[in-house]
Design a protein around this nucleic acid. Sequence first.
RNA 1: GCGGAUAUGGCGAAAUUGGUAGACGUGCCAGACUUAGGAUCUGGUGCCGCAAGGCGUGUGGGUUCGAGUCCCUCUAUCCGCACCA
Length: 972
Amino acid sequence: MPAYRPEEIEKKWQAHWKAHRTFQAQNHSEKPKYYVLDMFPYPSGAGLHVGHPLGYIASDIVTRYKRLRGFNVLHPMGFDSFGLPAEQYAIQTGQHPALTTEKNIETYVQQLSSLGFSYDWSREVRTSDASYYKWTQWIFLKLFNSWYNLDTNKAEPLTELTARFAASGSDGIRAAGDDGDRLSFSAGQWQLFTEKQKLAAVLPYRLAYQQDTFVNWCPGLGTVLSNDEVKDGLSERGGFPVERRLMPQWNLRITAYADRLLQGLDQLDWPDAVKEMQRNWIGKSIGAEVTFPVLPARASGAAGQVSDTPAAASATSGTPSDTPDVASEASKATSGAALSSSGGSEIKVYTTRVDTIYGATFLVLAPEHELVDVITTPAQRAAVDEYIAATKRRSERDRMTDVKAVSGVFTGAYALNPVNNEPVQIWLADYVLAGYGTGAVMAVPSGDQRDWLFATHFGLPIPAISDAQKDIDQQADPTKEGRYINSGIINRLTYKEATPKLIAFLEEKGLGKGKVNFRQRDAIFGRQRYWGEPIPIYYKDGTAYGIAESDLPLVLPEIDEYKPTETGEPPLGRAQNWLYRDKYPYELSTMPGWAGSSWYYLRYMDPTNEARFVSEEAEQYWGSVDLYMGGAEHATGHLLYARFWYLFLKDLGLVSSGEPFQKLINQGMILGRSNFVYRINGTNKFVTLGKKDQYETTALHVDVSILENDVLDMEAFRKWRPDYNEAEFITEDNGTYVSGWEVEKMSKAKFNVVNPDVLIGKYGADALRLYEMFLGPLEQYKPWNTNGISGVSGFLKKLWRLFHPEDGPLAVTDEPATPAELKVLHRAIQKVQEDIEKFSFNTSVSLFMITVNELTALKCHKRAILEPLVLLVSPYAPHLAEELWQELGHEAGSISHAGYPEFREEFLVEDTVVYPLAINGKVREQMQFAAAATAAEIETAVLASDFLAKHGEGKSAKKVIVVPGRMVNVVV
RNA sequence: GCGGAUAUGGCGAAAUUGGUAGACGUGCCAGACUUAGGAUCUGGUGCCGCAAGGCGUGUGGGUUCGAGUCCCUCUAUCCGCACCA
């Protein structure tokens, strides 16, 4: 009596697949290739909950479908195995993170296997394996040894840069990055540089470079974090406060690629939300840079003071102690130049609304602006110093939560508005960010609400500049409508006319130019942590060198404790005798979490290659990822970094496609469904949901595993916790205890985490896979609700019974199929194909149920119908399909490549069609016609029938609309 | 504030793209079988109404013979960014 026993079937086939390497992909094939990628997980100690596999199930369905369709599919899995949790655990317990990670990966592999995914495990990669991170380090060295040539608009090896230095000095070289950090020298001077000076001169060109940078420092974690690891001023992991701090850091020059990263988005088949997030993150804005000369202090009336000497300036701009000498000479040189130009100084501002410049009545500098010390008058110095100190005391979080408060201080200095030569006051305020644009803005209170608030608060003038502006004593008007007034050369012009005219005017006077700005900053690339890739850099005489490629990998050394050293160095400072070539100290920070994940999809193509990160043949064969499945939370982190690395590798000729991920699908998060019991206050009595309003109660979370369909297992509840041993219940009238529920994120504290292992044990992996798909649209956020799983479980049993009526042995007949049966089958063939290609898996599952119900009603046990049906179901319920496929007499494990059943439209065509008949759109009757009837024939038949007489209330037809196959509407 | 999405029975949802709204599944009601089970099967189940009938896809309008679907308005919820000049 072989009833459907999923646990036996699933074990059997999982073992078969493993033993026969059924899903191993070859790097060459006659078939077309298809690459389906899941975002690989960080193997956390908690294991998988029921929400994690959602995307994996969907991608596995696509994978299996594509195999049926005759593709050579690459579908790998691996682990992003460097990361903070294992290290935090190591700090607490002393257990090596590698051990923790290894153990967690085992759990993951076991859980993933039990879901029946068709991964090619022979290609598994782990970012923490030295054989993998050797190549992560190798790519870092490539970045370290490259610069970005703006003339060719791509990255090039540094050797080409130094060759140009030797030939013609630094003149005429246009490189991405901040020219202010770079020296100017002739070929002759270059020749005379020492090695150290040469390296220092080259450093600001490198795509991986070291620089003093304002960073998000997290004292709680003892490390710096990237912007996307900080949420609301707290660390994403752990929720510790984060502060701004100036530290020497390794950076990657992702800004060199900002425009290409932006342009590339247009051709990608990604969700609009993700593309838009990346666009905002890159934050391209088109505007102008305008120079405001600072008035000499003596002339600036109200201030009437002598400004400080230039010498004070370079003290604050600060030269980092470990930055090579030449570079610091450079920064001194630039600030010196700025000061000497006009006897006073000048302030550059960035604006996207240069058309409003006649309304600019004051300037605002960021408190960190380098000219603050220079221009502040003695009378204002105390106030300015106090304001800067207060700004520093405010944490990043305060600044964020407190955006509405207006604060600022007058420097006492004045500048000249370059278009009308009016003096304007120079203020400081922390709403201006040092890191964006020039760190200074021109304030136009009539056109910008923030400037308006500032002006109102400090009593500054608010002149109107457009005839469209109204109520500017109430609020600013930022619209671009109307014509300009009080605006010199652009009076009476519109926005579109004024902007180019002003830019031309400013360029002519040498006081401004059109400029594109990006919000995106370079990516900080170091973490003061142990469990990450060591950065392959060593120091000789204080200068950074990349280690030789032949010395890779630089293996993570063993250390005694996973904490910073007593002197505050990163944990790697504890390593004993950890020296390059026994002499030179290594860099002590490690790479951030996103390093290894930025290129893993390439390694899957050729995972064991020891000579290259991926062989040319494998890279060219697999190309880019055709379908990438993962969570939306990586929109501005991983997905941007990975694209950046790909473009860089492409510049070096190491990869061959335009973009790494062609199509991206974000699976929605599965939320938890918490259950509650209601304790009557002051008692140990619990009252059911239906009667709780009769008592004063407290709602308490209860473990969702001791309920079924919101009905509490009262015995299990008593055993759940000791203090509930004696619990009493007030039940519904039918004797059950019904609990309340609410949707929340899954978490242990809410007792709403549903473990897939439990459900697999109870219903089988096929049922779980089907149910997760059935739950709703893939990309939608949705609450988990175990209730419905019995429905899909019932479907699998019914499917089984089509093959084993009476639960006996296989009993299919070779009778020819009837038209009714063929219609059911071919509708399914067509629909499932459409659904998978639209990623609409939930409707496929519904269709399977309908199909099985109908075949059951038709008592259809025919091979001609059931065999193709098994193929249709196989991507969704692979274990059951394999079992039935074998029982039908096919070779074990052969279903994956058996081919998708052929769809024949003629089986769907009906002999007759029932048309609803409507009068003025209101359906009144139904009438049957031959399927082949023409619209004219139907119209004639309807008019000839007694339909109009019955429903038309004596009116005659004005128009008859026949919608083929759908309805006939008579307009009277 | 800016950007993106969503809104349909008690619940998850579907709707062949403008053509009988609510398929399928849960839940609920009734029934069958039964060594009471969380098994299997059958029927019913949007709302109001005894019925005839009426009303129904977040709100209010519009286009159309016909609107969940197209256009405009508003509202609510969720997500992302956020003093970016």
